[in-house]
Each structure stands twice: as structure tokens, then as C-alpha cells.
Nucleic acid binder design. Structure first.
Length: 466
RNA sequence: GCUCCCUUCGUCUAGAGGCCUAGGACAUGGCCCUCUCAAGGCCAGUACACGGGUUCGAAUCCCGUAGGGAGCGCCA
């Protein structure tokens, strides 16, 4: 049997990391078992669904590399099919028209609540044979009155529900449009879904869906309900942290494989391993190993995981991302060797590609502005003297390379009888404008002879200006 | 209110009755390395929600309690 999983987001809010994690689990499960992964957009609520949210789902999945084998399907385009199944259920006596007014329903509900009962429809229209004039009825599913439904959940184990706890849910509104639980059932059946992996907020819906699936003659799929992701504070994920469009992470300079790596570790692990490539995940992941408890989103660890991936990713790949991040800062460059050199020097100094771009400006611009504090600390007195020696030594350097620059620095340090730091820091401030950069020999080599000499001259001027 | 779900360091987790005086990772503090900042290395502190059982022995099994979450819509 081919495994078929699906990711079925509703475009009523922007796709965030919670949704991405369930998508990832579904995708991994399908890939791991050589199955198929379907993308289905659940947009039956035309009021709240937005085109922007749909676009974020599409773009986000693509950015993350969670490719689908079928779809995207849109529920809004399948209404004919839903109407057909609705009619079938009606004909077979498995569903019925309900003419109860909202007021009547409200009254029923209040009475039940007053009796400390769970509010539920009492099925009073089940026996009705004649329509009520002037009332557009809804359609309700005839749920079994007794017995139990056992959800054999892949992460929770068997969960038992009493049919007596369930009621006859509305599967079509009075305007004829089908409702969520019903559409899911028809789709999962039509698309031959074998494994439904979704958030555990749907666990309570599952027995109803199983009953409906059986009513339309489909063997229910296997289910795996995964816990949700909490905010760093342990409360529900908020806009402040995490509950933002997944594309926000791209803008912030996170690598897609790092985001996925971080997310998969929320509820899943493989021994003591923290860093995984996607290929490893496909090989190692199993939905039955996923934990039951909800977990909190930890931005610090995401940052660490991101840097770990940055330190191991191929240079040309990161260079491309750095170029895009620089573009956002208004810096255009096509200098591939420079970009790769900067990545090599900066990737263990930045936690995100955005941060790398921000701290690498001096590699790509013509001049730098010397930071006052750094200048005062390293370019005064002795520092200014060093600048002169540096200017002369580097000007005379024939082998313009990190090793060559290094040779000049050590010679000056030895000659002056000082540590390398006394020579390196003034040069660093002169070349970068700040007291922080990759090793100064490599930095100078990347910036290039001409600009280095020019910056040294300007630093000399700076030091001479009171 | 009713039904269902969950509970190991601050956080993510390992742990399927003895290997646990509970392991790893992030974060935190200290030290080392060092031209800066990082990265890296070493060290430190911090956890089995609580109470009963079962057992020679329980983080692991059972029962309660407490706390948290979800669902109970002509929302998805």
C-alpha cells in the first residue's frame, strides 16, 4: 500500500511555524516511506480566507522545500463533489434536514448548560418527514446513538470516545455550502489519504470524522495527532513570538533547512543528535516516535541551530543568500569570490544571514566611517604610529594574500617589540571602522590592496584630526 | 459544566522496572585557546508535578489529586 499524507491548512491566518511543523511531519512521513504528499487548501470559509494567506502557504512550502506530489487542491473548487455526497447521504437516510431555528438551538443549549450537561443537538429533526415552509434547512449527519469509536492514534495510542457524547453535526449550512468536518471526510476519502497527521486540536473531531467516513464507505486512515507549539513563555503561540508568517524567517536570515531542523526536534529526537540534514531526517524520522506533550518555541536554540547549518553549508549557496540580504541593505554586488570569502570569514560570527550582511558592509562599500569609540581606543598615540608602519609595510607587500599580510603584521610587531594585538587592532579599525571583524589578515586580503591603502590613509587623517 | 488530551533541568529532549547518586543540547556562570569578535574545548549549577499503591527494586506499571491544554459553532 502506498502511503499518502496531506497537509491541509486553512488560509484564514498566515502559515506559521506550528503549521510548518505538522507539514514537515507529514512530508517526512511520506518521503520516508516512498509515499505521496498532497497539499490541500481548506478554504470553504470564503469570508475569512484570504489570497495573501494562500500565497504564503505556497511560497512558504516552496522556500522550505516541502514539495507536494499532488495539488494544491482547493476545497472551494470541489463544491459539486460535496453536493453529490451530501445527496447520497440524504438518499441513504444517513443524513437529514434540520429546520430548527437558531433561537430554538440556543434555548436547547442554555437548558443543557443549566443542567451541567455538555451542549449538544438532541436530534429532534431526525424523525421529521415534512419540510417546514419558509425555512431553508441545514443538513445534519446521523451519528450512531450508542457504541464507541476508538481512534488508534499513532502518537497517543488508542483513544476511546462514546458515541453518546457526540451529536448530529451540521454538514451543510442552510445556504447549501458544506462545512469543514464534512469536506475533510470527503477529501480524505477521495484522495485516498492513508495517514492523517495534524494538530491535536483535531483529536476531538476525529471520532465524528471516522463515523462519517464509514457512512460513505471508506475505511478510515491512520491518525497521528501532534501537540501544538507554545510560545517561549509557555502560553499559546502569539504574534510576538513565532506566530508570524513563515516567510518572516527567510527575511530574518534563517536557512530553511535550519528552521526545519529546529522544528523537527520539537517533540522528536534521535539519540543525542541535534543537527540533521534533510536527507538524514527522511531516513530517520518516524511519526510514532513523536512525543505527546506540547513544547515551547525557543528562539535562542533556533539561532544556534541556524548558525550550525551556516557553518556547514556550501559556500556558493550561502553566498547567494548573502547577496540577497545585502540587497535588502541597498548593497548590490555580483562579486562571487568576495561573497564566498566573506561567508567563509563571517559564518562563525553571525547567527543569521541577515546579521552577517549587516556586519559585512565594509567588505562591499568604497569607504568606511570610523566608529568614534573604536577610533579613540585604537588609533590614538601608539595606534597612529602603527598606522604609519602598516601603511608602509603593506604598500611594499608583493604577495597580497592573508599569509602575506600576516607576515607584515608579525614583522611590525616583532620590530616594535609589542604583541600582535597592538598592530592588528589599529588596522582593524582602519579597515572596518570597528573593533570587530574576522581575522584581520584575511579581512585585509578580501578588501584588497587598493582599498586597504586608501582606508589606511583616511585613518591616518582621522588620527591627525583633533 | 461535560468529554478528550498532556505533565523529566528555565527551554528542547534521553529514558520502554535494576545500566539513573537521571544522560545530551540551548541558555547561564567560570576557565582555556586567542590580533578583536566569534567558533571550539573543559568545568559548574539546575529536573523525574504531588500522593498512594504493585514490586526485592519505579522517572519507567496501576489508581487518585493538582496544574495546563483542546473540543463542545450554520469557524476551520
Amino acid at each position: 500500500m502506498t502511503i499518502v499524507t496531506r497537509f491541509a491548512p486553512s488560509p484564514t491566518g498566515l502559515l506559521h511555524i506550528g503549521g510548518v511543523r505538522t507539514a514537515l511531519f507529514s512530508w517526512l512521513y511520506a518521503r520516508r516511506h516512498g509515499g505521496r504528499f498532497i497539499l490541500r487548501v481548506e478554504d470553504t470559509d470564503r469570508e475569512r480566507s484570504t489570497a495573501e494567506a494562500v500565497q504564503v502557504i505556497l511560497d512558504g512550502m516552496q522556500w522550505l522545500g516541502l514539495s507536494h506530489d499532488e495539488g494544491p487542491y482547493y476545497q472551494s473548487r470541489r463544491f459539486d463533489r460535496y453536493a453529490q455526497v451530501l445527496q447520497q447521504l440524504l438518499t441513504e437516510g444517513k443524513a437529514y434536514h434540520c429546520y430548527c431555528s437558531k433561537e430554538e438551538l440556543e434555548e436547547m443549549r442554555n437548558a443543557q448548560l443549566a443542567r451541567k450537561e455538555k451542549p449538544r443537538y438532541d436530534g429532534r429533526c431526525r424523525q421529521r418527514t415534512a419540510p417546514v415552509p419558509g425555512v431553508q434547512p441545514v443538513i445534519r449527519f446521523k451519528n450512531p446513538l450508542d457504541g464507541e469509536v476508538i481512534v488508534e492514534d499513532l502518537v497517543h495510542g488508542p483513544v476511546v470516545f462514546q458515541n453518546a457524547e457526540l451529536d448530529d453535526l451540521i454538514i451543510a449550512r442552510s445556504d447549501g455550502t458544506p462545512t469543514y468536518n464534512f469536506c475533510v471526510v470527503v477529501d480524505d476519502s477521495d484522495m485516498n489519504i492513508t495517514h492523517v497527521i495534524r494538530g491535536d486540536d483535531h483529536l476531538n473531531n476525529t471520532p465524528r470524522q471516522i463515523n462519517m467516513l464509514r457512512a460513505i464507505g471508506f475505511t478510515p486512515p491512520a491518525y497521528a495527532h501532534v501537540a501544538m507549539i507554545l510560545g517561549p513563555d509557555g502560553a499559546k503561540l502569539s504574534k510576538r513570538h513565532g506566530a508570524v508568517s513563515v516567510l518572516h524567517y527567510r527575511e530574518e536570515g534563517y536557512l530553511p533547512e535550519a528552521l526545519l531542523n529546529y522544528l523537527v526536534r520539537l517533540g522528536w529526537s534521535h539519540g543525542d543528535q541535534e543537527i540533521f540534514t534533510l536527507a538524514e531526517l527522511v531516513r530517520l524520522f518516524d511519526i510514532t516516535d513523536v512525543n505527546k506533550a506540547a513544547s515551547a518555541f525557543n528562539p535562542d536554540k533556533l539561532l544556534w541551530v541556524n548558525q550550525q547549518h551556516m557553518m556547514h553549508a556550501p559556500l556558493p549557496y550561502l553566498a547567494g543568500i548573502l547577496r540577497e540580504q545585502l540587497q535588502r541593505l541597498g548593497i548590490e554586488t555580483q562579486d562571487q569570490p568576495l561573497l564566498e570569502g566573506v561567508v567563509a570569514g563571517q559564518r562563525e560570527r553571525a547567527k543569521t544571514m541577515k546579521e552577517m550582511a549587516e556586519s559585512s558592509r565594509y567588505f562591499f562599500v568604497a569607504d568606511v566611517v570610523i566608529d568614534d569609540k573604536a577610533g579613540r581606543k585604537h588609533l590614538g598615540g601608539e595606534g597612529a604610529a602603527m598606522l604609519g608602519r602598516l601603511r608602509a609595510g603593506l604598500d611594499a607587500l608583493s604577495d597580497w594574500s592573508a599569509a602575506g599580510v600576516h607576515g607584515v603584521l608579525t614583522a611590525i610587531a616583532t620590530d616594535a617589540g609589542v604583541g600582535l594585538g597592538k598592530v592588528a587592532q589599529p588596522l582593524r579599525v582602519a579597515l572596518t571602522g570597528t573593533a570587530v571583524s574576522p581575522p584581520i589578515d584575511a579581512t585585509a586580503a578580501l578588501i584588497g590592496r587598493e582599498r586597504v591603502l586608501g582606508r589606511l590613509d583616511r585613518a591616518l587623517q582621522w588620527a591627525a584630526t583633533p
